Amino acid sequence: MDPFLVLLHSVSSSLSSSELTELKFLCLGRVGKRKLERVQSGLDLFSMLLEQNDLEPGHTELLRELLASLRRHDLLRRVDDFEAGA
């Protein structure tokens, strides 16, 4: 399986429902409101961002910004580990 997708799945499974709600709010300018209403998990949101090329294995800035906004430094370390091994 693609290591970047494994990372996104790992991050998604670590998010609380309130954190997902916050991420959806933060992505309002990037993803349409109707699409965001269908998001049920972090993976749903990340999939939309992947489709729009806002997220890519070599383009993790948005993911970092979102996780920093949540103050999830543990998840930021996972992104660091991914990039160190990528």
Results as ranks from 00 to 15, higher is better:
S18M: 14
G32S: 12
K24F: 01
E83R: 07
G29F: 05
N53F: 07
E83C: 08
L15P: 01
V11L: 15
K33D: 09
S10D: 14
P3E: 15
R64T: 05
D74R: 01
V39E: 01
L67F: 06
S12P: 02
C27K: 00
L50Y: 15
L23Q: 01
D80G: 06
K35G: 08
R72M: 01
S12W: 01
S17H: 10
G85R: 13
Q52A: 09
A84L: 10
R71I: 01
R34S: 13
K33Q: 13
V6M: 14
V11G: 01
V6N: 15
L63G: 02
E22Q: 15
M1Q: 07
L55A: 06
R64G: 04
V31I: 10
D74C: 00
L20W: 02
E65S: 12
Q52C: 09
S69V: 08
C27P: 01
S16W: 01
L26P: 00
R72K: 03
R77L: 09
T60R: 01
E19F: 01
L8P: 00
L43D: 12
L26A: 10
M48D: 05
P3Q: 14
S41G: 05
R77Y: 06
V6C: 13
L50E: 06
E56K: 13
R38P: 07
A68S: 15
N53Y: 10
K35I: 02
A68M: 14
S47P: 03
L50M: 13
R77T: 09
A84I: 11
D80E: 09
K24S: 04
R30V: 08
E61K: 12
L36V: 09
K24N: 03
L66K: 03
K35V: 04
M48Y: 10
R78Y: 08
S10F: 09
E83I: 08
S14P: 03
S17M: 10
D2I: 03
Q52M: 11
L8Y: 01
C27T: 08
R34H: 11
D81K: 11
L20D: 02
G58N: 15
L62F: 12
L76A: 07
R72T: 00
G32E: 12
R77V: 07
L26V: 05
L15Q: 02
A68C: 15
A86H: 11
L36S: 04
V39L: 05
L62I: 11
S18Q: 14
L49T: 00
R71V: 05
S47Q: 15
R72Y: 01
L75Y: 01
D80W: 05
A68K: 12
K24E: 04
Q40E: 14
S13G: 07
R78K: 09
S12K: 01
L62N: 05
A84C: 14
E22C: 08
S47R: 15
S14A: 10
L63S: 02
S41R: 06
L76C: 08
V31S: 04
F82S: 02
E61T: 11
D54H: 12
D54K: 09
K35D: 13
L15T: 00
R34N: 13
L15Y: 00
R77D: 10
G85D: 14
R77S: 10
L15M: 06
L75F: 01
T21R: 12
L28N: 15
N53V: 05
L63H: 03
F4V: 01
D54A: 13
N53W: 05
E19D: 07
L62P: 09
K33N: 09
R78E: 10
E51R: 08
R72W: 00
E65A: 12
L63A: 01
L43Q: 10
E56C: 12
G42E: 00
A84Y: 11
A86K: 08
S17Y: 09
E61H: 10
L50W: 13
L67R: 01
E19V: 00
L62Y: 11
E65N: 12
M1H: 04
L28V: 14
E65R: 10
S18I: 10
N53I: 04
L50I: 15
L26C: 06
F4N: 01
E56L: 13
T21N: 11
S12D: 05
S14E: 14
H59Q: 11
S47T: 15
Q40C: 13
D74W: 00
S16L: 03
D54R: 08
L23D: 01
V79A: 01
D2H: 07
L20F: 05
L43I: 13
L76N: 05
F25N: 15
L15S: 02
A68F: 11
L43T: 10
G85S: 12
F4K: 03
S69F: 06
E56P: 05
D54E: 13
R64L: 03
S10R: 08
H59V: 05
E51Q: 09
